[in-house]
Every structure is written in structure tokens, then in C-alpha cells.
Design a binder for these strands. Structure first.
Length: 400
RNA sequence: GGCGCUAUCGUCUAGGGGACUAGGACGGGGCCCUCUCAAGGCCCAAACACGGGUUCGAAUCCCGUUAGCGCUACCA
């Protein structure tokens, strides 16, 4: 059996959020476990919202987590010519047609359909155009998109995490695959690229389940066998809703700043929607790789629990030698405006077991470094009070 | 509205017809340790959404209901 090829394909329209990071982790874990290849592809076809800054942040986040890739990053925007060629091939083979409906007309139809309590489905009016009419409109300079013809047949696949999933073609639209500016729509771009990159397993969020039948239809129309699909569950906020800004920290960079260790984050993320079976919780990287399988993946969405993340971080913190904590703690102290330090290791050793984050370690070290507390802010004061006099004394502080 | 997915303690989960008096972890409560706060140890409370089947036997299989979530763009 040839080794699998998987890919993580984020769109650089925002930060690397924990859901994306978890998807990347699963792809990486699967590639590591099977000896396969992990491809990184940046899906930047939404030119309005994609930025290089976001791309950089996503790459940094992956590196921080220790998630590596064997190929790429490829940039989807560079394959526009192939996307267009695929769309035109479909058009030439009679599997797609030109649509001259304007956005306004489409919106009006949609509004009307919804008003009538019916789901909107494109009525194929442009499919009914004669070749002469199509030529006429093109000659007149009317802009057009290319729509893919969805047949009425059932489309089903054996999902690696959900088992059999099926859709009826009649419930699906003739969807647009090429915009009037000749750029590809997501579903086409993904399929075109996954074919070109010989992706064998598509491991992605299950919010893509409803895109899958469209993509399978595209694979078939393009004469290709679809890959294995594994739709992993979403990560939700504490209120059970899709994770968003109002849930506070959702980007992996936020956790990096809060003093979470990459190993702890990775371990915690792996356990969001995947279980090695049994009672294992703290899993070193090599164990994680050895134990990872697609059928250990949960079907149900998981709520992101930062309290448990912090607990796990505390576990990693206690286990790590002070030596390895030196750099992050020093960086944090620097951030707090505290410098000129001697050997911090003994100090770090004395406080790491009682800490949950690097930030917490640094705060306690700071208390010790500044016995007269002149540079301490209110937070440091509160910390001393919380630690109590016994702790202060144990650090050699003469405080009450 | 339509289509789809999902359903075990508050949360992450184990379990996949009899081993279930449903296990572990976080969080919560209590006790121990301790000059304080943590860490650590011990203990307690806490769940199979509901209703029908199938079966000698269902948390586990099937159907329905309910609820939650996702998608329903010339976004990805």
C-alpha cells in the first residue's frame, strides 16, 4: 500500500485558531503514524480577505506547536490557470454551462424563494440557453460564471469517522465553479489541487460535510477517484457555539502569550475529539504518533475547556527541568520590565510545581527578584497576598 | 424552511450486546500533609436525552421524537 498523502489547507483570512490547529495536528499525526506525507497548502483564493500577515502567523503557530510539513507551503493562488482549465474542460465536455445571471438577479430569486418558505435552488435558466444565445451574450460582453451540472443521483461515501454519509443530488444546486473574473470557487480549487497534489486522505472539519458531495461529483466529472474523507468534529466555545472572538482566546498565539507550553497545547488539542482509548491523558509526542488512528476520532463536537488546558500545562511545567523553562521565563520577565538577572534556575525550580503557566512562574520569580517590591504592580501585590506570608518567607522575603 | 451531522457526569472522555453497582481526567465538595498558598495523597457528589422496537439480555443494534450544531454565496 502506498503511503498516504494528507494536507492541511488553511485560508489566510484570520489567525490560526484552535480548531484549525487541531485539524493540522490530526493531519500531521496521521502522516507521522503512517509514514505518509503532510502537505501544507495556503488557500488564498479569497483575495479580498487573504493577507501575507495571516499566512505568516499561521506558519508560526504550526511551528510553535511542532507541527511540520513535508511539502509546501503551496499557494493556491498560483494554480489559477489549472483551475480555469479544469472549469473550461468541464464546460467543453458538457458537464458545466455558462451562467449570465447577475448577482442582483440571483439575490432577488433567493429572497423570493425564502419569502415563500422554500429553500433556494438555482432554476437552471441559463442551462436552457441555446448555443446561439450563449454566443450572442458573450459577444455583447455580458459577464458570465461557469456552473457545474449536479445530476439527480445519490452521492454517498464511507467517511473514515462517520461511516456512510449520503446526499441526494436533487437537493444540491448547480453551483458556480468559476467566477466571472475567471477565478475558481473553493470547491473547484480544492478538488483541482487535491488531484494535482495526489492527496489520498482529506482530514478536515465536519463543517465541510455538506461540501463533500459537490466535491465528489467534481472528482467524478474530472475522471478521478475521490480520496478518503475523514470529517473531524468541531471545537465549540463554553456556550456550545462555534468558537469565535467573543469566547476570548481562540487563536493559538493567545495561548502562547498566556504562557502555555507548546507540548501541553499539542497534547490537549490531540485529546479534543480523539482518544487513544482507555485512560491515557498525558501523551508524549512519540506515544501520540504511535497510538493515533482515524477511528479513534470522536463524532461529537467538543467544548474547549481552558481550565483543563491550564491543568495540563501545569503537569508539563512540573515535569520540565528549569533549564528548559529559562528562556520563556526570561522573555516573560523582560516583558514585565524586569532585567539584570543571575541564575534563575533554582528559583524556577522552587516555583514551577505550583504554577500553571509560564506567566505564573514569571510572576513568582519576579516577587523573589524584587524583595522590596518597589517595582511590583498591583498584580504582584495580589500574588504575594495570595501566596501568603509563609511562602514569602520561604523565598527570603521579610514581608508580613 | 431544506439538507446533513451529532447525542454517556457541568466539561474532555472510556465503553461498541452479558465483565456496568457505567470507569478515568478537569472542575466542585471534604479530609490528610503543611507556618500560608500551591503541589501531592485519600474520599464524596455528578451521566447513558426521550419513546418505541430487535434480543434470553441494550449505554452499546434499528426506527421515531426532541434538542444542539453545520451548510444552504460569483466566502473558505
Amino acid at each position: 500500500m502506498t503511503p498516504p498523502r494528507v494536507r492541511f489547507a488553511p485560508s489566510p483570512t484570520g489567525y490560526l485558531h484552535v480548531g484549525g490547529a487541531r485539524t493540522a495536528l490530526f493531519n500531521w499525526l496521521y502522516a507521522q503514524h503512517t509514514g505518509g506525507t503532510h502537505v501544507l497548502r495556503i488557500e488564498d483564493t479569497d483575495r479580498e480577505r487573504s493577507t501575507e500577515e495571516h499566512t505568516r502567523i499561521i506558519l508560526d503557530g504550526l511551528r510553535w506547536l511542532g507541527i511540520t510539513w513535508d511539502e509546501g507551503p503551496y499557494f493556491q493562488g498560483e494554480y489559477a490557470a489549472r483551475h480555469q482549465a479544469d472549469a473550461e474542460r468541464l464546460l467543453a465536455e458538457g458537464k458545466a454551462y455558462r451562467c449570465f445571471c447577475t448577482r442582483e438577479e440571483l439575490d432577488a430569486q433567493r429572497t423570493r424563494a425564502e419569502g415563500g418558505g422554500v429553500g433556494f435552488r438555482y432554476d437552471r435558466r441559463c442551462f436552457k440557453l441555446t448555443p446561439a444565445q450563449v454566443q450572442e451574450r458573450i459577444r455583447s460582453g455580458a459577464p458570465s460564471t461557469i456552473r457545474f451540472i449536479m445530476d439527480d443521483e445519490e452521492i454517498a461515501w464511507d467517511d473514515a469517522v462517520h461511516g456512510r454519509i449520503s446526499f441526494q443530488g436533487r437537493d444540491l444546486d448547480d453551483f458556480v465553479i468559476l467566477r466571472s473574473d475567471n477565478s475558481a470557487i473553493y470547491n473547484l480549487a480544492v478538488v483541482s489541487d487535491d488531484i494535482a497534489m495526489r492527496i489520498s486522505h482529506v482530514i478536515r472539519g465536519d463543517d465541510h460535510i455538506s461540501n463533500t458531495p459537490k466535491q465528489i461529483a467534481l472528482y467524478r466529472a474530472l475522471g478521478q477517484t475521490p480520496p478518503v474523507f475523514a470529517h473531524v468534529p468541531m471545537i465549540l466555545g463554553a456556550d456550545g457555539k462555534k468558537l469565535s472572538k467573543r469566547h476570548g482566546a481562540t487563536a493559538v498565539g493567545d495561548y502562547q502569550e498566556q504562557g502555555i507550553l507548546p507540548a501541553a497545547m499539542r497534547n490537549f488539542l490531540a485529546l479534543m475529539g480523539w482518544s487513544p482509548g482507555g485512560d491515557r491523558e498525558i501523551l508524549p509526542e512519540d506515544e501520540m504518533i504511535r497510538l493515533f488512528t482515524l477511528d479513534g476520532i470522536q463524532k461529537k463536537a467538543a467544548v474547549f475547556d481552558t481550565t483543563k488546558l491550564e491543568w495540563m500545562n501545569g503537569q508539563y511545567l512540573s515535569a520540565l527541568p528549569a533549564n528548559e523553562l529559562l528562556e520563556p521565563v526570561r522573555r516573560q520577565l523582560d516583558h514585565m520590565g524586569i532585567q539584570g538577572l543571575g541564575d534563575l534556575r533554582p528559583l524556577i525550580d522552587s516555583v514551577k510545581a505550583r504554577s500553571r503557566t509560564i506567566l505564573h512562574v514569571a510572576e513568582q520569580v519576579a516577587v523573589r527578584l524584587d524583595p522590596d517590591r518597589s517595582a511590583l504592580d498591583a498584580k504582584g501585590e495580589a500574588l504575594i497576598r495570595k501566596m501568603g506570608s509563609g511562602f514569602a518567607r520561604s523565598l527570603g522575603l521579610a514581608s508580613a
